[in-house]
Amino acid sequence: MKENMELRPDLMPPVLDEPLVSRLTKYAEEIDCGHHEQTRSQVAAFNREAMTALEFIDFQGIYGGQSHDTWVRKVLATPYERRLTDVTKQELVELARRVMEDVGADHEVEFWLSMLAINIPNERISDLIFWPDEYFGDVNYSQRLSPEQVVEIALGDRDIEL
């Protein structure tokens, strides 16, 4: 396992207000397992504090896919996920490495995967990382790709130059 390359702040998950994360996580837990009519005030409070416009349905089934804490952190990080005009290939490789090696907390890995998807406009980047056999349409494909190969292939599919 390689040592982490230093990433500039634009490529790092935002530092979040932990008391806010805690409050929003509690709301998300109540809404996710609650009833639409009985959780209106929690949805309104969540939206007010998170500056979002989510609906009751957006909270349903969170627990089945990830922790409420991770989901809240993802919601709060979304405004920080953006395309960078000056991103380098080396930075993209580092993002891919962190995702592929599961470096950091779940919300950090999700942030880096989102940044990869935004900065390499290849809608199948997650398939390339997690399910290369599906990406290549070959059920017998068993090669483990390196982060460098992932970035090269993803960029090559779109003919993007950095």
Rank of each mutant, 00 (worst) to 15 (best):
E3V: 04
I118Q: 11
G34M: 03
V75M: 01
I125R: 05
Y141Q: 13
E3N: 03
Q90T: 09
E29Q: 03
I62H: 10
H35I: 14
D102I: 09
V99S: 00
M115R: 15
F59C: 10
A96N: 08
D69W: 01
D138E: 08
Y135E: 04
D69Y: 01
V150E: 05
E81Q: 08
L95H: 00
E81C: 07
I31M: 15
A105I: 01
Y135M: 06
W112G: 00
D58N: 09
T70Q: 02
Y135A: 07
V75D: 02
N119Q: 06
V87T: 04
A96C: 07
S142L: 14
A105F: 03
A96R: 07
G156E: 02
L113Y: 02
A154D: 02
D32W: 07
L116S: 05
T88F: 06
L145N: 07
P121C: 08
E152L: 08
K74V: 13
P147I: 05
P9T: 10
A77L: 02
S22C: 06
D58F: 06
S114P: 01
E110H: 00
L145E: 10
H107Y: 14
L113P: 03
V99M: 01
S126I: 07
R40S: 13
D127I: 03
R82Y: 12
M5R: 15
R23N: 08
L113N: 04
E29K: 09
Y141S: 14
D32M: 10
L16K: 01
Q66C: 14
Q38G: 06
T52E: 14
G104Q: 09
Y63W: 06
Y141L: 13
D106F: 00
F46S: 07
T52D: 11
A117C: 10
I62V: 11
Q90W: 00
M12C: 13
E108P: 07
F111E: 00
D69R: 04
W112I: 00
D69P: 00
N140T: 11
P14M: 08
R124E: 09
A96S: 12
D159K: 05
P147F: 05
S114Q: 04
R82Q: 14
A50Y: 05
M51C: 05
E18P: 06
D10V: 12
L16C: 02
F59P: 13
Q143C: 11
I125D: 03
W131S: 15
F130I: 09
E18A: 14
M51K: 11
A50C: 05
D127A: 09
K26S: 12
Q143F: 09
E81H: 06
D32L: 08
R97M: 00
R40C: 11
T85C: 10
N4L: 13
D32T: 06
L145P: 10
F59N: 05
D17Y: 11
R40K: 15
T78C: 06
W71Y: 11
K74R: 13
E81I: 13
S142W: 10
A154W: 05
P121E: 12
S67R: 01
L84Y: 04
P19E: 12
I160W: 04
S41C: 04
Q149A: 11
P132Q: 06
M115C: 13
M1K: 09
S22H: 06
